[in-house]
């Protein structure tokens, strides 16, 4: 790891000020992506601004079916929140399968959405649930927020402070983890609200997380795994790498969508 200068921010305003004063600063929350990237010198920020001790970035609140998760909330906290499980168990289930227990104690939802790793789990949930990403300066719909591989609409001096969404009537998430890295080689989040069904896919898209209109139409007609029998999605535009070809991922999208629907129906 190259040299860096560490700063612990006490508030969002303090963090912004610290970043402004830094030459090439980066915000760090749980650090479960950034610290390993710095160890391998893939990232070398001159300054690290630690957001982990900012009280205003912590906590989950549920009012009726409106859910707000502040950015500094860890995956372990999302996974074990009873309040959240009562209205949206699928997001708890998703969080409980990110990384491993040690990673879940540190990694945060804000860090995950801000990093927008094309194989991360949360972006699929955000897109399928029609979530809003809140920053220190504005609010963005998930579909406007995630813009490409590791790319978001965030400005350099913008901090994700929370996400909020209305819990769907029924939803579920399934992923096919890479056998070595355990990142999603394809993950599908399905959410149903009355006749409206959203299907968001992570780990497969060449431009990151995306929605599948074809699968959504099939499931809107019949929200059952059987509705996807014989369904297919085009391989064009999907990622192809040493782990899986685009064609293989296209098949996985349908298989994971079926499993996600089955899981959602089981509740």
């Amino acid at each position: 790891m190259y040299q860096t200068n560490y700063h612990r921010a006490s508030s969002v305003a303090d963090a912004l000020k610290l970043l402004q004063d830094a030459e090439d600063g980066k915000f760090v929350s749980g650090g479960m992506t950034l610290i390993p990237a710095m160890k391998t010198r893939l990232a070398a920020p001159s300054d690290l601004i630690d957001l982990r001790h900012i009280a205003e970035l912590k906590g989950i609140s549920v009012e009726g079916n409106k859910v707000t998760i502040r950015a500094g909330t860890t995956h372990a906290e999302v996974a074990t929140s009873r309040e959240l499980a009562a209205v949206c168990p699928a997001i708890c289930d998703l969080a409980s399968h990110i990384g491993d227990p040690h990673v879940r104690h540190m990694g945060t939802i804000g860090g995950s959405v801000a990093n927008n790793d094309p194989a991360a789990d949360y972006p699929a949930a955000m897109l399928a649930l029609g979530a809003t990403v809140v920053t220190n300066s504005r609010e963005l719909a998930a579909e406007d927020f995630f813009t490409g591989l590791f790319e978001t609409a965030l400005d350099d001096d913008e901090i994700v402070t929370a996400v909020y969404f209305t819990a769907a009537e029924t939803c579920g998430y399934e992923k096919f983890p890479n056998p070595a890295s355990r990142y999603a080689m394809t993950g599908v989040f399905v959410a149903k609200n009355g006749g409206d069904v959203r299907v968001a896919v992570t780990g497969a898209g060449g431009d990151g997380v995306f929605r599948s209109a074809d699968l959504e139409a099939a499931l809107a007609a019949n929200f059952d795994a059987s509705a996807l029998e014989g369904a297919s999605i085009p391989a064009e535009g999907l990622m192809s790498d040493i782990h899986a070809s685009a064609e293989y991922r296209a098949n996985l999208v349908v298989v994971m969508a079926k499993r996600a629907v089955a899981k959602a129906r089981r509740g």
Partner: peptide, 16 residues
Amino acid sequence: HMDGKAVKSCSVLAVQ
């Protein structure tokens, strides 16, 4: 364990 929770000490800085 950091503050009672298991963490990977290779992925946390001493300053953190």
